[in-house]
Design a protein around this nucleic acid. Structure first.
Length: 873
RNA sequence: GCCCGGGUGGCGGAAUUGGUAGACGCAAAGGACUUAAAAUCCUUCGGAGAGCAAUCUCUGUACCGGUUCGAUUCCGGUCCCGGGCACCA
């Protein structure tokens, strides 16, 4: 034969054949075990894929092929997260419609995926910007809109159930709801009722401030604001108050937190989600004021005796009610100044505390002390109750505020640990008793109690006396989805004189009008507002309505696409329930850590809602998750970026080395989760390895002289084979691809050694077959070509993965390490079944040990079975 | 500031549960083949030292200390790098 390895000839040929044969088409649901292996679906950009992107697509492809060879029913699909700002901005610049760009960009991605041999089932391709898809994104929106979260059963249920309950008993049975009687409910107008219900719906609209870029004349998403400036214009972003749509993700905070326990995700991602959800337990405490009872939230009720003043957020409703006449002008000025500031200004680092005194006082419920009430912007309306008790001795922020405005500081906790500093009498700095364990002082009946005990006792006392109660708060905010943009899923809502009305399900999809091009508006409205045909609707009763012109942010599209892949062609439903139940949850989900919070949290949320409403039987969408590390530029530690001109594309690598070499190198480059620089020399090394495999399997005649020192028997070769199969299988399943490649390299080297001695023994045949089959998922083109040239029946990708035999993999000999006082002094090759007595004996007799004992008697002997003997003197 | 990762040869990186540090690959050096080059193959390759030599000794996983018969691995502290959060009471 003597054919040269020529990937440029081999690869396109097999790509065409596999495509024609639909080799990777997903089988229908059957009795086999299933494996759903999914990449984060990409956002097609004009730049195409880089070798960095291939870092996740190659391993998931290897895994998919591996499971196919184990006769799993594998779902490995690909689609396009097509809506969103980059495509839209590019389209505005080019004065075209983004749909055209997406078609062009995704075609290029698809070409690249084929080029590198990714085994996607293209019959399941989805595009989130197509009406066939976003129709169902809108449908899910309506499911959220028509549902509320009932805290009593910890589940979403239809809003109709709530309406029924309100008519029967008002809100009396609903914890946390504002009081309303059945009579009051019945007396409400239709618009009032809608208003009231929107406080419960999982999708609701409310006035909220947004990021406004005055140069771009557009609203920006939070992710598009970097250090307070628009990501493209670089100008300072302003705040604008607009009516915005939200999803009530906060209702699911506890479940989103709790269910992290049961999923196999990287610990740091779980931690980021936990921090983002930000649960804190504490107490809600009521302080009496002239305007009524003022509620605060604290995680440290044990510091109640140290409260020397209170602070309200500038937006707090009590501010106007409490402020005394003589303080009014000053308070008003402060609030006006606060409003003019952006969030960035308000939270800027190292900023000095600001605030004003309201002139009012509140009564501390634990000691009836009268303390002044201040207003300051460091207290946020969005967390807790928007009011705090300030304990300057034990809270850094309160301390800074007290120093700035000369307010009293009272230490109420002393540290208990040894050498603790005395409480600072001059209050130049806070005492150390925060947040650790301490002992209460100056705290009336609790003096001498430890803080951990006191927290529980005080909370119980507050509850018993009606002055407060146990409370839990979350940092998590509701998910804002409104975008004043053209290129997104239209929100299926109509605004009528009677209020908002959902678009009936049978009228979905609300199609995006196919305009040629458009410009952003000055008003902060979506460009859709300028398209009258889109906006104007005539209601069945003849009145005129106005279509919602906001679109959904793209995180909505990506919050359910993994479900659509289970049943992508369904025109009757978002997905067939039995298909979803069969394929989901995703068994292995792979993508970048940059989505650790947003996408992964939103998708979990939607899944839980769909579960509660009876559409899916599981509560978590992604059973296993892994994040690939970034591939950096070859020189130094820089990221690859277009602006730096250091991007390496798979196209150029495939042209120079072939797809199989690219794939092998992507696996070999480093630990999967670790960032690492690209290195073309390293790539050449894996290419060299593949060439050696090619030569070994196809041109075995070139005999080399027998190397007596590495001479191996057939039994040795079989051991190599079975050990390698075991290790490679184990490492693929464990996502350790770099050691998969190094094991296969070692195995190849062993085969070369074996070949010097015996070319056509059964043991050699077994070894080379195993090598070829293990190579199939990694280098699919080359493996197929060799398989074919060896005259085997098409296709190597339909073969079974080799099985290993534990007995054959077992070692015959071990290396017994000899240590004296923990230092390695020698090594002996011994039979694997070595007994402890024998090991001890040979160790003591050995020349190496005796030399280091220097005639002294051993004090102690440590034996680690099959590994070492340590002689201690 | 707080919370997570990580730090191993010239480089990318290996190293079940605490038990042979540096697998595998790159680069480099020397050699073989060749008119020559490429390709390929062979050998060496953490640092220092001793020996004609096989080999041996010391040292070494960011730094300092601890636990242990034994530490890259566990504990305490320090430094550096990367990521996340950032007035959340």
């Amino acid at each position: 034969m003597n054919r040269r390895y020529d990937p440029a000839e081999i690869e396109p040929r097999w790509a065409v054949r596999w495509e024609a044969d639909e080799l990777y088409r997903t089988a229908p649901a059957d009795a086999r075990p299933k494996a759903y292996i999914l990449d984060f679906f990409p956002y097609p950009s004009g730049d195409g894929l880089s070798v960095g992107h291939c870092r996740n697509y190659v391993p998931t492809d290897v895994l998919s092929r591996y499971y196919r060879m184990h006769n799993y029913n594998v779902l490995h699909p690909m689609g396009w997260d097509a809506f969103g700002l980059p495509a839209e901005n590019a389209a505005i610049k080019l004065k075209t419609n983004p749909a055209k760009l997406i078609a062009q960009y995704s075609a290029n991605y698809k070409r690249q995926f084929r080029l590198i041999g990714i085994s996607f089932d293209w019959s399941r391709e989805i595009d989130s910007s197509q009406p066939e898809y976003y129709r169902w994104t809108q449908w899910i929106f309506l499911q959220l809109y028509e549902a509320w979260y009932d805290p009593r059963i910890r589940s979403a249920i239809p809003i109709a159930e709530l309406e029924k309950e309100l008519a029967e008993s008002g809100t009396s049975g609903i914890p946390g709801a504002e009081p309303l009687t059945a009579t009051q409910w019945k007396g409400m107008t239709s618009a009032e009722k809608k208003d009231f219900l929107s406080k419960f719906r999982l999708a609701y609209r409310v006035a909220s401030s947004v990021n406004w870029d005055p140069v771009e004349k557009t609203v920006l998403a939070n992710e598009e604001v970097i250090d307070g400036r628009g990501w493209r214009s670089g100008t300072l972003v302003e705040k604008k108050v607009l009516l915005q749509w939200f999803f009530r993700i906060t209702a699911y905070a506890d479940r989103l937190l709790a269910d992290l326990e049961g999923i196999d995700w990287p610990e740091h991602i779980k931690l980021m989600q936990r921090n983002w959800i930000g649960r804190s337990e504490g107490a809600e405490v009521q302080f009496a004021t002239e305007a009524g009872s003022l509620k605060i939230f604290t995680t440290r009720p044990d510091t109640l005796w140290g409260a020397t003043f209170m602070v309200l957020s500038p937006e707090h409703p009590f501010v106007s009610r409490l402020t005394t006449t003589d303080r009014k002008s000053e308070v008003d000025a402060y609030i006006a100044a606060t409003k003019g500031q952006s969030e960035i200004d308000r939270t800027a680092e190292g900023r000095e505390k600001t605030g004003v005194f309201t002139g009012a006082y509140a009564i501390n419920p634990v000691n009836d002390e009268r303390i002044p009430v201040w207003v300051a912007d460091y207290v946020l309306m969005g967390y807790g109750t928007g009011a705090i008790m300030a304990v300057p001795a034990h809270d850094q922020r309160d301390f800074e505020f007290a120093r700035r405005f000369d307010l009293p500081i009272r230490v109420v906790i002393q540290p208990t640990w040894k050498d603790a500093p005395a409480p600072p009498l001059d209050a130049n700095q806070m005492t150390g008793a925060w947040p650790g364990e301490g002992v209460m002082v100056e705290s009336g009946p609790f003096d001498g109690t430890s803080t951990t005990v006191a927290v529980a006792q005080i909370t119980a006392w507050l509850e018993a006396t009606g002055r407060g109660k146990l409370a839990v708060n979350y940092k998590l905010r509701d998910w804002g989805i409104s975008r004043q943009r053209y290129w997104g899923t239209p929100i299926p809502i109509l605004h009528t004189p009677e209020g908002e009305v959902p678009v009936p399900e049978d009228q979905l999809p609300v199609r995006l009008p196919p305009v040629e091009h458009y410009e952003p508006t000055d008003s902060g409205e979506s460009p859709l507002a300028n398209i009258p045909e889109f906006v104007r609707v005539v209601m069945p009763d003849g009145t005129e309505g106005r279509r919602e012109t906001d679109t959904m942010g793209t995180f909505a599209c990506s919050s359910w696409y993994f479900l659509r892949f289970a049943d992508p062609g369904n025109s009757e439903e978002a997905f067939d329930r039995s298909q979803a139940a069969y394929w989901l949850p995703v068994d292995m989900y792979v993508g970048g850590a940059e989505h650790a919070v947003m996408h992964l949290l939103y998708a979990r949320f939607w899944t839980k809602v769909l579960h509660d409403l009876g559409y899916v039987p599981f509560v978590e969408p992604f059973q296993r998750l892994r994040n690939q590390g970034m591939i950096l530029a070859p020189d130094g530690k820089e990221k690859m970026s277009k602006s730096k001109g250091n991007v390496i594309t798979p196209d150029e690598v495939v042209m120079d080395w072939g797809a199989d070499s690219l794939r092998a190198y992507e696996m070999f480059i480093s630990d999967f989760e670790q960032a690492t620089p690209w290195n073309t020399h390293g790539l050449a090394g894996t290419h060299r390895w593949l060439k050696r495999v090619w030569e070994l399997l196809l041109n075995p005649a070139d005999r080399l002289p027998v190397n007596e020192t590495t001479r191996q028997s057939d039994r040795d070769l079989r051991r190599w084979t079975h050990k390698t199969v075991k290790k490679v299988s184990h490492d693929i399943e464990g996502f350790r691809f770099n050691t998969v490649i190094s094991s296969l390299m070692e195995f190849t080297n062993a085969l070369y050694e074996a070949q010097r001695q015996a070319v056509s023994t059964p043991a050699f045949q077994e070894a080379s077959d195993a090598l070829l089959l293990m190579l199939a998922p990694i280098a699919p083109f080359m493996a197929e070509e060799i398989w074919s040239l060896l005259g085997r029946p098409y296709s190597v990708h339909r073969q079974s993965w080799p099985q290993h035999d534990e007995n054959l993999a077992a070692d015959e000999f071990i290396t017994l390490v000899l240590q004296v006082n923990g230092k390695v002094r020698g090594r002996l090759t011994m039979p694997a079944g070595l007994k402890e007595e024998q090991a001890r004996a040979v160790a003591l007799e050995s020349e190496a040990v005796r030399r280091h004992l220097g005639g002294k008697p051993p004090r102690k002997l440590i034996y680690v079975p099959g590994k070492l003997v340590n002689v201690v003197v």
